[in-house]
Every structure is written in structure tokens, then in C-alpha cells.
């Protein structure tokens, strides 16, 4: 037995406190981050998440202001409330970051994602795929005698639901953009 009566399986011999961070309630938050569009800025953001062990569920980025060269990054992340606060504070510390907004707590907001689905097949399955696409308001953007490419925009849940329906009907390829989000109203 060691001098300190360490219980079996305890992490007390470690220099660090190894408690399970998942023990608390996990929340999903959608953050928008406006950054200077300079070399390496995305690496700084992604490096922060990987370096500190935060999750990225979805990340999208594009320049939104040509004159000032600013880009908007939309990140969907998960964590305990304390971790989410940490993520926001850490993002705010990055020098080229202009602003960090947590849409999930700041009020009503919209989330949209664009997806492209390639569905191959013939006969009834092909007809059914087209019928469902119509119901989901997906557009046919490419067609051969054995395939369709559907384009659809919506929430991630809607796209998930459509993908689930297409799978038995011959879904062979999926491309998704990840989430873009914006607050509702004038806020």
C-alpha cells in the first residue's frame, strides 16, 4: 500500500484531477464569430477547440465583408454550461476575433444548412424518391436515367430526416455545408 492510502482505481496519484467532465448536463450552442479574414485565422479557431478538448459539431466559414476583410464563422458546439462560457471567453481572446455571439442564449435565431444528395435507382424507388423530394421541397439539380441529385436547404434536423428516407431508396452520396445561423428580427 502506498503512503497516501490511495483507493484502487483512484486518479489521486495523478498530478491532475481526472473527474469526468461529462458528468454534468451537456448543452448544444450555436456561436457566430466574426474574424479578420487573414492567413491562419481558421487554424487559430480550430486549434483552440482541439487544443482545449472542446467539441465541434459543425463549422462553416466565409468572408462576409469584402471591404474590411471580415469572415463569419458559425460553430455548433456542445459542452456543459461552464465549458460553453469558457469556449466563448477563449474565442474572445484570439486577437483577430472581432465578436463572439451565442445565438442559443441571445434570442430567437434561424439555422440553415444546404445539402446535396445523390440517389441512384430505378422503378418504384426512383418514383418514391422524387415524390418525397417534392414533399420536402428539395430541388432536382441533376438527373440521369438512373440518378437524381437533390438540393435542399433547411435545418439540420430536416436534412437528417430526408437523408433517413433516402437511404433505403438508393442514397449513394451526401454533401452538407454545415450550419449557417443568424438572429431573427432586428437584433
Amino acid at each position: 500500500m502506498s503512503a497516501l492510502n490511495i483507493k484502487k482505481g483512484s486518479s489521486a496519484h495523478s498530478a491532475y484531477d481526472l473527474k469526468n467532465p461529462n458528468a454534468e448536463v451537456i448543452e448544444s450552442h450555436t456561436l457566430t464569430v466574426v474574424v479578420d479574414n487573414e492567413a491562419g485565422v481558421l487554424a487559430r479557431v480550430i486549434g483552440l477547440f482541439s487544443g482545449r478538448g472542446y467539441n465541434i459539431e459543425s463549422l462553416t466559414v466565409a468572408e462576409i465583408n469584402e471591404e474590411y476583410h471580415t469572415s463569419r464563422i458559425t460553430i455548433v458546439t456542445t459542452g456543459t454550461p461552464q465549458v460553453i462560457e469558457q469556449i466563448k471567453a477563449q474565442l474572445g481572446r484570439i486577437i483577430p476575433v472581432h465578436s463572439v455571439n451565442d445565438l442559443t442564449v441571445e434570442g430567437p435565431y434561424l439555422e440553415r444548412e444546404l445539402a446535396l444528395f445523390k440517389v441512384t435507382g430505378s422503378g418504384d424507388k426512383r418514383v418514391e424518391a422524387l415524390r418525397l423530394a417534392d414533399i420536402f421541397r428539395a430541388n432536382v439539380v441533376d438527373s440521369t436515367l438512373e440518378s437524381f441529385v437533390f438540393e435542399m436547404t433547411g435545418t439540420s434536423e430536416k436534412i437528417d430526416a430526408f437523408a433517413d428516407l433516402m437511404r433505403p431508396l438508393g442514397l449513394t452520396e451526401t454533401a452538407r455545408t454545415g450550419v449557417a445561423a443568424i438572429s431573427r428580427g432586428t437584433a
Binding site: 469558457q86 471567453a89 481572446r93
Partner: peptide, 11 residues
């Protein structure tokens, strides 16, 4: 002075 130090370890 660093907001990320607040509530990082101890609430």
C-alpha cells in the same frame, strides 16, 4: 484582466 480565467476552474 483575462475574462477566460473567470469560472474556468472554480465558479
Amino acid at each position: 484582466i483575462d475574462p477566460s480565467s473567470i469560472n474556468k476552474v472554480i465558479a
